[in-house]
């Protein structure tokens, strides 16, 4: 009799739900309109707390909370002063790049203050009405730019509808469903496993599903832009999931489409496509992510050595591609 493969049977005991580091990339922080000039607040992101602020002239900053001087939490009692954020403890001031610009006492400036930023801040920018920050575990500068998204940056498109959902898993796990075509039939109830094409190019993943029904790109772990086309009408979804902690993410999405006259057939169709992306739309036989994906994400464990069969999507190529975002930790056996 053949000996049984015990690893197969027992491995799940030692598996983790989310063995991944926080990935590198551009990530959504907050909506531009919800941060006023002179405002400052604490946000949880990338497995730690940060202080988000907007200077009087409108520049956004996202900094580590703890003052390099004596460790006070700048987000508790600190203030925006002109173009700087000021620590409450001794009024040391920093610009949005983390350079110390003012120490209101002391005749000598510590040399490192002139040499480099001393407060960790993340490169930040505003695009599509959203605030973005670049996360890299070793504070490296951005290695790619956010793409142009005409549907969100040019006139002729409706004000985006937005949604946000907390998920108890990591981004790699969420995005893996994008290349798991078989689950669309069984979990979502699609009529069949849709044909799909996936290509990987640097930090970008291209997906073309069901012969042009869903076409889009992922730009690193923090931004996906997908176009859904039915009967000649296209709706655009951008998803911008945030890694809150290693095991907790916040999914965020904006949906838009071209402006169509009120009461037109085109408008009805465009709205239906958007409804279908999210949940269940009338007359559709498959379910959007909201109604079915969470139960899996919130309870699964990650198998670094999954048992795949023919008919599964390019899961392993996706994972190999995703490793580039674990800067310096690509060799972890658990991922």
């Amino acid at each position: 009799m053949a000996t049984i493969n015990l690893k197969m049977l027992l491995e799940s005991q030692s598996l983790e739900r989310c063995p991944f580091p926080i990935p590198t990339g551009w990530f959504f922080v907050d909506y531009s309109e919800s941060l006023k000039a002179g405002e400052l607040r604490n946000v949880e992101l990338f497995d730690q707390e940060w202080v988000l602020f907007r200077t009087e002239s409108g520049k956004v900053g996202l900094t580590d909370p703890y003052c390099p001087h004596l460790g006070a939490h700048i987000g508790h009692g600190g203030a925006v002063v002109g173009e700087h954020i000021r620590c409450p403890f001794h009024h040391w001031e920093y610009d949005t790049a983390g350079w110390c610009k003012h120490i209101p006492y002391g005749k000598l400036t510590p040399p490192i203050v002139k040499k480099q930023a001393i407060l960790r801040t993340l490169p930040a920018q505003e695009r599509y009405g959203l605030i973005w920050a670049w996360y890299h575990p070793a504070c490296e500068e951005p290695s790619w730019d956010l793409p142009a998204i005409p549907q969100l940056e040019t006139p002729g498109f409706v004000e985006p509808r937005r949604g946000t959902w907390p998920v108890n898993t990591a981004i790699q796990e969420i995005a893996e469903n994008g290349v798991d075509f078989a689950h669309l039939k069984f979990l979502h109830g699609a009529p069949g496993i849709p044909p799909a094409e996936v290509n990987f190019e640097d930090h970008i993943i291209h997906i073309d599903m069901a012969g042009g029904y869903i076409v889009g790109k992922g730009y690193g772990p923090g931004l996906n832009v997908f176009h859904f086309t039915q009967e000649g009408i296209t709706a655009t979804m951008i998803s911008y999931t945030q890694p809150i902690t290693a095991e907790r993410s916040q999914m965020n999405m904006s949906f838009t489409h071209a402006e169509y006259p009120e009461g037109s057939k085109e408008l009805v169709m465009a709205k239906k496509i958007v409804d279908h992306m999210i949940g269940q739309a009338d007359g559709e036989d498959s379910a959007g992510f909201e109604s079915v994906d969470f139960i899996v994400w919130n309870n699964k464990k990650y198998r670094p050595n999954p048992l795949l069969c023919d008919g599964d999507g390019p899961i392993l190529r996706y994972r190999e591609w995703f490793k580039q975002f674990y800067s310096g930790q690509e060799q972890l056996e658990t991922i």
Partner: peptide, 9 residues
């Protein structure tokens, strides 16, 4: 660098 800063005073 610190000595250079001191040189100013």
């Amino acid at each position: 660098l610190m000595l250079e800063a001191l040189a100013e005073v």
